[in-house]
């Protein structure tokens, strides 16, 4: 019995670590998108060294708080394995049309509740970090092909959950902020996995030819 409990503990620890990694990744990914897509003024961001590169993080207190709130809840959902997708929607202020959807699919590679199965040799964190770095670089590089946002925009973060405990005082149901199907284009970005979570990033955007 002691080895089993140890294993489970270890599994819990890795789940925690994985969740922390994923949450952190979401934070920097969201910040990068907000900066590079010009949704918030560039002056509001300051540079931080992360994943062996420079990333920009907002200094806007309200925004910071908003992202922190979301990530806290996302952390919980990740731990319970009930979140399936995290979407950052960029919406035009005037027309309320969704212009971009940054989708992060979250796949559980192992159900976090069961501690059975042989524990594979743990993936080195440097490898995971390099994968995350690649994803963030791709997010930055997406500026090259995404249409320029000429109008003022606002963003929203949506969480796609399944059988999750929802603090109803904070979270409310909403629509999926879909892009018009005939005008939607999609680019799949890189993905990374922490043996427990596999995050697949992609960006869908509205493109009027």
């Amino acid at each position: 019995m002691p080895p089993a409990s140890k294993q489970s503990q270890r599994g819990n620890i890795t789940l925690k670590g994985s969740t922390a990694l994923v949450t952190e990744f979401f934070k920097f990914a969201v910040n990068s998108i907000l900066y590079h897509r010009g949704i918030y003024p560039a002056d509001d961001f300051h540079m931080v060294k992360k994943y062996g590169q420079v990333v920009l993080v907002t200094q806007d207190l309200g925004l910071e708080k908003y992202i922190d709130n979301i990530l806290q809840q996302v952390h919980e959902w990740l731990m319970s394995g009930t979140i399936k997708q995290l979407v950052l929607a960029v919406i035009a202020k005037e027309t309320r049309i969704t212009l971009e959807r940054w989708v992060f699919d979250i796949h559980l590679q192992e159900p976090p509740t069961t501690s059975d199965g042989k524990p594979a040799p743990p993936k080195p964190e440097s490898e995971i970090q390099s994968e995350i770095r690649a994803v963030i670089k791709q997010i930055v590089a997406s500026n090259t092909f995404l249409p320029t946002l000429n109008e003022p925009t606002v963003f929203n973060i949506l969480a796609f959950t399944e059988n999750a405990d929802i603090p109803t005082e904070k979270w409310v149901d909403t629509d999926a902020h879909a892009i018009e199907p005939s005008k939607a284009q999609q680019v799949k970005l890189r993905s990374f996995d922490t043996q427990l979570h596999k995050i697949e990033a992609m960006v869908a955007y509205r493109y009027d030819a």
């Binding site: 908003y66 709130n69 979301i70 809840q73 399936k84 997708q85 979407v87 929607a89 969704t98 959807r101 989708v103 929203n156 973060i157 949506l158 969480a159 796609f160 959950t161 399944e162 059988n163 999750a164 929802i166 005082e169 904070k170 979270w171 409310v172 149901d173 909403t174 629509d175 999926a176 902020h177 879909a178 892009i179 199907p181 939607a184 999609q186 992609m202 869908a204």
Partner: peptide, 18 residues
């Protein structure tokens, strides 16, 4: 990806104050 389809048992949520 474009958000045109949401699986049946998936709830789309947003923070109330976004």
């Amino acid at each position: 990806g474009a958000g045109n389809h949401v699986p049946r048992n998936i709830r789309v949520l947003q923070l109330q104050q976004n």
